[in-house]
Amino acid sequence: MRASFVFSEVITGLRRNITMTVAMILTTAISLGLLGGGLLVVRMIDKMQLVYSDKVQVVVSLTDDISANDKSCSSALCTKLLHDLQGAANVEGVTFENRDHTFERFKQLFAANPELVKLTRPESLPASLQVKLVDSSKSDALVKAFSNQPGVKNVNDQNAFLQKIFSALGQFRFIVFGIAVAVAVAAVLLIFNTIQLSAFTRRTEVGIMRLVGATRWYTQLPFLIEAVVAGIIGSLLGIILLAVLKVTLFDQVLGGLASSSVLPRLDMLDVVAISPVLVLVAAVISAITGYVTLRLYVRL
């Protein structure tokens, strides 16, 4: 097989159907950009799970009575709760935080919001028992068991809140993937058409190739490479699109949340990490589409 021959055929083919080629490249780029966006959301969820998994706790807030009078969890009620929690299944450790500590932490947390800190009295914050779980996803039993115990004001499961964020992100990812699939279908149809057109405009060449005994691969390879080259160019454009979106949209809009470490930061490294996947997806899909088109619709 002579590479120079195949290469020149590919260039001619791409140039000859330039409008179709551009359409094919652009739809591929958009589709893969969206796919990449979805993959980035997945990465973000993974990172969040990593960041939060050792922070998530179940907070057992104590009644006002205990909060006001017991600074070191020495009352009978508080000691019993502490012991019961320590003895419960799935519990790794329990720490007591009295009202003063809670207020200190509150002040730190909202240092950027002095108005709020000024308005808040320590009396409005409860003392609490902070329970660290072995497996934070199995917090239900504990929450149920301690919700109505004497001395307990309420039980706050941070995991439940986190799950809400994850499910929102999951839905967002689902929508992005959905659009990506729709655009991918359009891209596939365009590849399909472009190859047929390409084969039609080159029917004389192909006819001669057949007659002089060129092998199937020799006649088909230029068409296949044409599709794959367009697919790869499309995926590279998609990656650039993604990088631009990351800088302009993600960093601008969600940058604040990321810097206050509510959301994990997305680096360029994340974009780089998913790039090979996108290029590979583009190459494989365009190759398969090309091959099927040639097999079914083009007599070579």
Binding site: M1, T204, L211
Partner: peptide
């Protein structure tokens, strides 16, 4: 097998030599 037709079937974008060479190029 060599083939010749009434309508010649030459490639209009290639020179005489390239047309002949094409038959050899595509069989490697």
């Amino acid at each position: 097998i060599g083939c010749v037709f009434q309508d010649f079937r030459l490639l209009a974008t290639k020179t005489v030599a390239e047309n002949v060479a094409f038959a050899l190029e595509v069989i490697g």
